[in-house]
Computed example of a mutant assay.
Amino acid sequence: MARPMIEAATLDGRINGSGVFHVVVMDPARTPLNASFEEAILCEHTYGKQRAEWDADYAGFARAKARLSWLHGQDSFRLQTAQAHRLRPGDTALWGSVWLDGIVVAASGAEAEFDEAFSGAIAMLLRALAKEALRQRPRELYYR
């Protein structure tokens, strides 16, 4: 659902000068209590240029942002700007990931505010799909 918006933004130099947009989505059922970071990655996808044409490691940046939000249960912007005391040596100084009710999505390739906006849009769509699935369950399952 977010693909048309992201693909259009990848071509807009004001939003995305790199021509690349890499997204990482974490499995909300896998937390630091029951999985390693690598095990908790649900999916990754790149929009725009092929990896051989990248000018930086956008996948690595997106993973580093996802790791922060996954470990701390909050958006990377909040960690970077209001809770820098929680950061450890080796943590990224980049932001652009979101934590929404346990759903973590991170992106890299655009300006940070757009990485965050598109991560948020994807997280909201995932939450909507989960709510839709719940709504379609038989009502007797709600009251057990």
Rank of each mutant, 00 (worst) to 15 (best):
H45P: 03
A121P: 01
D57V: 02
E132I: 02
S97P: 09
G17E: 07
Y142F: 10
S119E: 02
V23K: 08
A133T: 07
E111I: 10
M1W: 13
E53R: 04
A82M: 07
R86L: 15
A40V: 15
F77E: 04
S18A: 15
L100Q: 11
G19S: 06
K49W: 04
T92G: 07
A112E: 11
A29M: 14
M1A: 10
T10I: 13
A52T: 07
C43A: 15
L42Y: 05
L33T: 06
R63A: 01
E38I: 10
Y47L: 11
H22I: 10
A133W: 11
P89G: 08
P28T: 13
S36K: 03
A82G: 05
I41Q: 05
Y143N: 09
A40Y: 13
L141V: 12
M1P: 05
A35V: 00
I15V: 12
N16D: 02
V105L: 01
E116A: 04
E7K: 14
L87C: 12
L125G: 06
Y58H: 08
L68Y: 11
A82S: 08
P4T: 12
C43L: 15
R51V: 12
S97H: 10
G13N: 06
R67Y: 13
F77A: 10
G13E: 03
R30G: 08
